[in-house]
């Protein structure tokens, strides 16, 4: 039997130990879980985050991130039982750090990485122009997104989007994304 070297639980626990932990979810992202996560996050933010501005930004990032995750959950990963994802919100002295993690096909990672590198290379004004351009002329995807997800996250993030990719096996990888929201 093939044993996966990568363990999502270890990756998740590692994040819980970074900074002050505010919220975390590890498990499948079914429609029910999706709605529950949003409900829990909103409740936690109301208690833990003092400014409405930060609460709204974090919640917006969570919404977009979860929908991004939903779009990237792949059939091949599901066949191997790799349907778990994680979402985690931590706080340090200066900002809130939102982490998401999901399995994806290694061949799909190149496209994801290229998009993140592209948005990271742009200034906030350039991101805004790109967003407007796609909104105005881009074709919507099946779910309606038109590839705006990473651009929106980059617009809202205080810093570059941080990502890493861990090899799971020859076909599948685990992708972690970090978005930083100011206080």
């Amino acid at each position: 039997m093939y044993t996966h070297v990568f363990d999502i639980k270890n990756a998740y626990i590692g994040l819980l130990r970074k900074g002050q932990h505010i919220y975390g979810h590890l498990g499948e992202l079914s429609k029910e879980n999706f709605d529950l996560i949003l409900e829990h996050v909103e409740h936690v933010l109301a208690v833990e985050v003092p400014t409405k501005k930060a609460r709204k930004k974090i919640f917006s990032v969570i919404i977009e991130s979860l929908q991004n995750l939903h779009d990237y959950i792949c059939d091949a990963c599901a066949l191997e039982g790799l349907t778990d994802v994680f979402v985690c919100i931590n706080k340090d002295a200066h900002a809130y750090h939102i982490y998401t993690g999901n399995f994806l096909m290694r061949k799909d990672f190149n496209g994801v990485e290229a998009r993140i590198k592209m948005v990271n290379s742009l200034t906030k004004n350039q991101l805004r122009e790109l967003y407007r351009g796609i909104l105005s002329y881009g074709e919507a995807s099946e779910s309606g997104g038109a590839g705006l997800g990473f651009i929106d996250l980059a617009k809202k993030s205080e810093e570059d989007l941080v990502y890493r990719c861990d090899k799971v096996d020859e076909k599948i990888a685990f992708f972690t994304l970090e978005i930083v929201v100011g206080e």
Binding site: L135, G144, A146
Partner: peptide, 12 residues
């Protein structure tokens, strides 16, 4: 209060 990127496309 909130809208996602796919809704923004529909608003356009």
């Amino acid at each position: 209060e909130y809208f996602n990127t796919s809704s923004s496309k529909c608003l356009v």
